[in-house]
Simulated assay, not measured.
Amino acid sequence: MIRARDTSTMLVISGTHNGTEMVFTLESLAQAGVIFIMALAIIITNILIIATLLNFRGPSEVMNCYLLSLAVADLLCGLLVVPLSVYPAIVKLWVYGDIICRLVGYLEVTLWAVTVYTFMWISVDRYLAVRKPLRYETLQTKTRCQCWMAFTWISAAMLCSPPLLGLNEPAYDSEAYICMLKWSNMAAYSVTLAILILGPSLITIVYTYTYIFRMRNKLRSGVPFHDKEYATALSESLSNPSHMMSFALVVAFWLSWTPYIAVKIYEYRTGKFNNTQLLHFGIVWLGFLNSFWKSIILITLSPQFRLALRIFCMTICCRYKGRMQAELIGMEADD
């Protein structure tokens, strides 16, 4: 039986599910709506990114391999993780069973590891473009980058498999309405995973971008280079907007997840747990919102992606005629 009643602060709708009474509040419906809109935004934008990059036949296909990896990881998150929290947010109960809960937790950490590893390879790619601008095209081939991406996905899936094999019970977060791994119950595995994923990734990202910005400042300050050919190639490489675009992607990712990581570290070290449901809900889904920010950064900071997006739109709208016009746009951009 469903019944509704007005209170002084909100409309409350209550009903029964499998003999258990549930209460639907405006707050829960609003939070479910936020999750649903996030899922749609993540799915639509990442499908658009994947279609745009696959349709593009211009230069810089090496970077496109990494961007495709990020977009696929975000799309899987939008399809297989985020939507499963919409209904639990309404009924305030996980209704899909322990197996699905375990799979969701496994997918979250696997896709997160893939993203972190991909950012590491992107930073290495940008480092090589600055460190060895004359040999970059021979060092970073499309086939080599595809192999690195395949290795990244396979290794991430294997490293994150212990919780899937039953070494840890699935944990439903009733405040964020999502299943997440309970790292405190497997401290040794958590430390090992952090060393294998966060350790090399953070060290590589910090070192490579420090070098890139240092060389950029050196070039702007007019420091003379003995090899003029190298100086010219370095100047052309540093003028590539992919450096700032990739750096913005990394910064956006860590800014999205830093509040959640900071709160969890604080709670673990102090033993004091924050009971504010809205805060906990916000920091969890702020992290997942990173899967949407990438599209905004690509459109804002990447002229090549904007060109590829324009080509894709013309191809879809005008078919073969639009394809010819798009190729002419690409030729004009190269000139």
Rank of each mutant, 00 (worst) to 15 (best):
120 M>E: 03
119 F>M: 12
286 L>G: 15
248 A>C: 12
119 F>T: 00
333 A>Q: 13
249 L>F: 05
6 D>K: 10
275 N>T: 12
89 A>Q: 08
252 A>W: 03
131 R>I: 02
222 G>S: 02
12 V>G: 02
101 C>F: 09
167 L>R: 00
100 I>R: 05
242 S>V: 04
66 Y>F: 13
278 L>P: 02
255 L>E: 01
245 M>S: 08
24 F>Y: 14
256 S>D: 08
55 N>E: 09
238 L>T: 00
25 T>P: 11
110 T>E: 01
252 A>C: 08
156 A>Y: 08
198 L>N: 11
289 L>W: 13
215 M>C: 07
74 D>K: 11
131 R>P: 03
240 N>V: 02
222 G>C: 01
56 F>H: 10
160 C>A: 14
327 E>C: 07
184 S>W: 01
247 F>E: 03
40 L>A: 13
254 W>T: 05
234 L>I: 01
211 Y>V: 07
155 S>F: 12
195 I>M: 15
4 A>L: 12
282 G>N: 11
230 Y>H: 14
190 S>D: 05
209 Y>H: 01
201 S>N: 10
234 L>W: 11
54 L>F: 15
211 Y>A: 01
244 M>T: 09
229 E>D: 13
62 V>C: 11
305 F>I: 10
208 T>Q: 00
318 C>Y: 11
114 V>D: 06
2 I>C: 07
116 V>K: 05
215 M>Q: 14
47 I>Y: 07
50 I>V: 15
217 N>Q: 11
206 V>A: 02
266 Y>C: 08
144 R>D: 07
80 L>I: 04
30 A>E: 08
114 V>Q: 10
169 E>L: 01
